[in-house]
Structures are given as C-alpha cells and as structure tokens.
C-alpha cells in the first residue's frame, strides 16, 4: 500500500464520479433539469451490471437472490476481450434510459421542479426495492462476488491500474461524445431551453422532446457510471447509495467545477473528491465525517452565491458573425 496505488484507487473513484458529473452536466448544466435523485440511476446502473455479470447464487453462501446472469463466465460473450464487461455497461445504460423515459414522460411537460420531486421519489423507490426484494439482489446483505474486468488474468495487486485505464478510457470517450453533442445544434437548443423555454418553443422547437432526450442521455451516462462503480468496489448494498455520496457529492462536483462546462464537470469531480478524501487526513474537525457532510452543502451554497459559474464557468459561445 504505497502512494501510487492509493493514487490509482483515488483516480478510479474520481473518474467514476466524473462520469456522473458529465451526466448531470447534460441535465443541469446544459438543459436546466433539476435531478436530485442521481442515487436512483446510480443504484440502478450498478445493480443491473452486477446482476447480469455475477454468477448465480450459491446456496452454500446463504444468498437470497435468484438470478445471476453469469455473463463473465459464458464463453460466447468472451471473444477474448471481455466483451461481457461492456455489454453489462450497455445494459446498465439501457435500464437507466428506460426509467428516465418513464419519469421524464410524466413530469417534463409540467413545471420544472416536478422533475426534482419525481427524481427524489424514484431514488427512494429504487433503494427500497433493492432493500426489500431480497430475491432480486440479496437485500441488505448485498451483492458480492461481482466479477472483475479481465477476470483472473490480472493479479489483484495490479487490478487497480488496469481498471483505472478502463475508467479513464470510458471517461474520455464520454467526454468527447458529450462535448460534440452539446456543441451541435442539438446542444444549442438545450441551452436555449435552459435560458428561455418560451422563446425556444416560439422558435418552433419541441421543448418537451428535447428535454426528454437530454434527460434520457444524462441518465444513460449515469447508468454507465453506476456499472463502472459496480466492477470497481465489487460489493453493492442499498446502503452504498445513500443520498450523500450518490447524489449530493456529485452536485457539489458539478457546481464547483463549473456547470455547463464539460471540462469543469470533470475538474470538479477530481477537485471535490480530492477535498472529500483528502480532508479526512487532516486533524481536528475535518476528521469528523459529519463536518465534511456540512461542508458539501456549504460548498454548493457558496458557489451559487459567490461564483455561480464554478471554477471554469460556461464557455461563451457566439456565432462567428457576432464576434467583435
């Protein structure tokens, strides 16, 4: 356990959080959708990937769940490059997309904050579902034995480095995709909706459709983040997805880094996760996890009041003809 392996572990978590932060940036940063139930998509993505790839329950281990997809063991999915891993991620993304479609379809026609209330409700419902339905995911005992990327090919002490590569690759791919999406005319409509919904509607844009697409895309990215998380910690229990570490911290990350800016979203994830994990080594009041809890809330309020754009702020985008 030296500095380098600690740094690798840190970077993996920060990278996974950066994925969530990117997803939230589509919701809030670009479109102005107020999602306070990130934990719901987090849990859904993580559990979907885990359940599809984990071995079926072992009666000797007193496991209560009934279904394990066992993708990591099925040969035809292997193809030599651990394709199952990416199929699991895709499945997690699809699951979150479907839930987002349902929630968005009901609430996005209504005033903005109904979405917030609905996401809050869905997060709690998802948590309660995985807690109470032991047959689905082993209830509060949690799912363990979640397979590793590349299985036993990598020795445990080197797994973090390999996995860090996977997380960063996914993060970079998502960053490029989101960047392109938000720079495109489609992204411009989202920003128009955020700034003035009525004006966007008046210029002939179907505001509901665009909002729904943005909500689904953000949720899909969150599902990917959840799947990455599942194969990193390789243990999931409903308590993993408490609002603090699965919703609030991600909000602080986006707000600090700069909402509306994808680079800011990633920077914020690394910065806030650095503050969160770093301060626990400081003496005094910082040792108290509750103080850090308080700090996250205070951070959000301070950013809104003092520097609403966060560290990086949103890039100003103007048509070429308007410049100068």
């Amino acid at each position: 356990m030296d500095i380098i392996s600690y740094a690798a572990g840190f970077a993996i978590m920060a990278g996974i959080y950066a994925v969530f932060s990117l997803g939230l940036n589509i919701h809030w940063g670009a479109t102005g959708l107020f999602n306070i139930g990130i934990a719901g998509f987090f849990a859904l993505g993580a559990y979907t990937a885990a359940l599809l790839t984990t071995q079926p329950p072992d009666p000797m281990l007193f496991e209560d769940f009934t279904f394990g997809g066992n993708w990591s063991e099925i040969g035809f999915l292997d193809l030599g490059i651990d394709l199952w891993f990416f199929l699991g991620i895709a499945a997690a993304a699809i699951a979150c997309g479907i839930i987002a479609l349902a929630i968005g379809y009901v609430t996005l026609r209504l005033r903005d904050d109904y979405l917030a209330i609905a996401t809050l409700g869905i997060a709690e419902t998802v948590r309660l579902f995985f807690l109470n339905e032991k047959w689905v995911a082993n209830g509060s005992k949690g799912l363990y034995r979640i397979p590793k990327f590349l299985g036993d090919l990598v020795s445990p002490e080197n797994y973090d480095y390999i996995y860090l590569g996977v997380v960063l690759a996914v993060l970079v791919a998502l960053f490029i995709a989101v960047e392109l999406a938000l720079k495109s005319p489609w992204g411009r409509v989202l920003r128009a909706i955020r700034e003035d919904e009525v004006a966007a509607e008046a210029s002939g844009k179907n505001v509901f459709n665009f909002k729904l697409q943005a909500f689904i895309l953000g949720a899909v990215i969150m599902g990917i983040g959840g799947a990455l998380f599942a194969h990193n910690v390789r243990f999931l229990a409903p308590i993993t997805f408490d609002p603090l570490l699965a919703t609030f911290v991600i909000w602080a990350m986006l707000m600090v880094g700069g909402s509306g800016n994808n680079r800011g979203a990633i920077l914020g994830a690394f910065a806030v996760w650095g503050i969160w994990t770093g301060t626990q080594f400081l003496p005094g009041i910082f040792e108290d996890p509750n103080f850090r809890f308080f700090m996250i809330g205070a951070l959000i309020v301070t950013v809104i009041l003092i520097r609403p754009g966060g560290i990086l702020g949103e890039e100003r985008r103007m048509a070429q003809t308007v410049k100068d």
Binding site: W28, G32, F34, I36, D112, D113, A116, R194, L244, F248, W251, M255, N290, F291, R292, F293, F294, M295, I296, G297, A298, L299, I300, V301, I304, L305, P308
Partner: peptide, 19 residues
C-alpha cells in the same frame, strides 16, 4: 435567477443543515 437555481441553493441548505 431561475427558480431551479433557488431550489438548488435549498438543496445545499438541506445538506448543510443535516451535516
């Protein structure tokens, strides 16, 4: 500011109060 930003601030308040 946009009403959602005010809700956002209240989310920060909620977290800070619980902390």
């Amino acid at each position: 500011v946009n009403t959602a930003v005010v809700s956002m601030a209240s989310l920060g308040v909620a977290i800070a109060l619980r902390g």
